[in-house]
Amino acid sequence: MSDAAERLAENPFFVLGLAPDSAPREIEREAQKLLGMLELGLADAMTYATPLGPRPRTAERVRAAAAVLRDPRRRLVAELWAAAGASPIAAAGARGDAGPPGDGGG
């Protein structure tokens, strides 16, 4: 699985199981509920659906997702990708996990 596809599967909206037009309050409420369910090990919270199939849901992913959606700019990017997630090109998975020389990152 390539990085780009994996990033799509980690889209905050998928992780929280919410629509891209959810209000901030709904996002906080859902994240709090999911964290509680995960803490108590309730089966219903253990996985989430993505266009690439179900993924394991962890408390870290939920926290990270809520943090991204609190930032208007990062939220906008997540909205774009969540919408693009339905398109066949993105879902087919993009390569590009290695940078060419000069891009840094070593």
Binding site: K33, G36, L40
Partner: peptide
């Protein structure tokens, strides 16, 4: 029963999870 709830909540209608 184990409970999970926010001890302080900005939300007027938060969730309570129990097991």
């Amino acid at each position: 029963v184990w409970l999970q709830y926010p001890p302080v909540s900005a939300d007027l209608t938060p969730h309570v999870v129990g097991r």
